[in-house]
Computed example of a mutant assay.
Amino acid sequence: MLEKFKSFLSIGPVFSYFFRVFRKDTDGKYPHSFNLKMMHGINKISILMFLVCLVIMVVRCATR
């Protein structure tokens, strides 16, 4: 039961996606299509915007 719960809360695949979306797929392990490329492009933009906003919030909080 505890192992099932630990595997349910595992965030390893999420972090591996964040790093995978920013590098080229050279081994052909994942499918290639126009829709998938656009989705990854939009995800890159949203991840970068989130990180920029996070930095802005931390700076604002630290300077108060």
Rank of each mutant, 00 (worst) to 15 (best):
L54E: 03
I47V: 10
R23F: 10
M38C: 12
F34L: 12
F22V: 04
N35F: 14
M57L: 14
M38E: 11
I42E: 15
K44L: 09
C61K: 13
F50Q: 07
L51S: 10
S10G: 07
L2K: 14
I11V: 15
M57I: 14
S7R: 15
S33R: 04
M57V: 12
K24N: 06
R60P: 05
N43S: 14
A62C: 03
M39P: 03
K4E: 14
T26V: 13
K37S: 02
T63S: 06
V55W: 02
K6D: 06
K29D: 07
M49L: 15
F15K: 01
L51Y: 06
V58R: 11
K6Y: 11
H40P: 01
I45V: 15
F15L: 06
V55H: 02
N43Y: 09
K44G: 07
L48S: 02
S10E: 05
M49W: 14
F19D: 12
T26R: 03
T63A: 05
S16R: 00
V14E: 10
M49C: 14
Y30T: 08
L36E: 01
V14H: 12
T26K: 03
C53W: 09
P13R: 02
G41V: 07
N43E: 12
V52I: 15
L51H: 04
I56G: 03
S10Q: 06
S46Q: 05
F8M: 15
R60Y: 10
N35K: 10
I56Q: 00
L2F: 15
M49Y: 14
S16G: 03
T63H: 04
K6E: 09
K44F: 03
T26Q: 00
H40R: 08
C61N: 13
F50P: 05
I47A: 04
N43I: 07
H32P: 00
G28H: 03
V59D: 01
L54Y: 04
L2Q: 12
E3H: 15
V21I: 05
